[in-house]
């Protein structure tokens, strides 16, 4: 016999997966728009707002499940983690919007070197997808992989930051290129952190322990 709670858990799982897939699409669109100079700010804003509303829906529904069914153990950890993950996905949406806004505000950047952003974007896209699939499959091992990838993202960001400062002294310095890259790298670095937090959530659901890295 199906527990009443299971019906609710299935619904909240569907909501969170919708959020995950939408956030992947939004970040991908934002990065593509930056790369190709396509203005997508209104569309990405709409998606970001949708994620924000979905996050509120997840929180409301999670609260309802707790109030009505008083879940414990893994059920409770799952609901708690879904609330955290929903926040993470809504942040993905917000950063996607921020990326689109950089393009809208100071873009396009046809002559800028985008190699650093491209490199980091590749890793971060992989991280977002991994965070979504780890949540879908409740793969506790994903958190370790996400942390390794996060280290490389952090490293790229720090190096670029240093480089940007030294480059400002050069004559051919193009502020638009460096500022846009720096902002986008910063947003990607934040997305990477949130992907790790989602990995932590999965680890917590499965083991009951916080991530060993925390």
């Amino acid at each position: 016999m199906t527990r009443l709670l299971d019906i609710g858990l299935q619904r909240i799982t569907n909501l969170i997966m919708d959020m995950g897939h939408l956030s992947v699409d939004l970040v991908n669109s934002a990065l593509e728009s930056y790369d190709k100079g396509i203005m997508l700010r209104p569309q990405i804003f709409e998606g970001s707002e949708k994620l924000r509303f979905l996050q509120m829906e997840v929180t409301d529904f999670a609260t309802e499940l707790i109030a009505r069914y008083q879940p414990v153990a893994r059920d409770l950890r799952l609901i708690q983690s879904f609330m955290d993950a929903a926040y993470g996905f809504s942040r993905f949406g917000r950063y996607a919007y921020d990326i689109a806004e950089v393009l809208e505000t100071i873009g396009p950047f046809p002559d800028c070197d985008k190699s650093q952003v491209t490199t980091m974007a590749k890793t971060v896209k992989e991280m977002i997808e991994l965070s979504v699939t780890s949540l879908e499959k409740l793969d506790k091992n994903a958190s370790q992989k996400l942390y390794m990838m996060d280290d490389s993202v952090d490293s790229v960001f720090r190096n670029y930051l240093k480089k940007a400062i030294t480059q400002t002294k050069k004559r051919n310095f193009e502020p638009k290129c460096y500022v846009s890259s720096l902002l986008i790298l910063r947003y990607l670095e934040r997305i990477s952190d949130h992907a790790c937090y989602i990995g932590d959530c999965v680890h917590y659901v499965v083991t009951g322990d916080p991530s060993p890295r925390r």
Partner: peptide, 16 residues
Amino acid sequence: FMNPEKELTERYISGK
């Protein structure tokens, strides 16, 4: 109630 060690405990308290 948050993280029982035994599967049997988990199943019981979760109403399974």
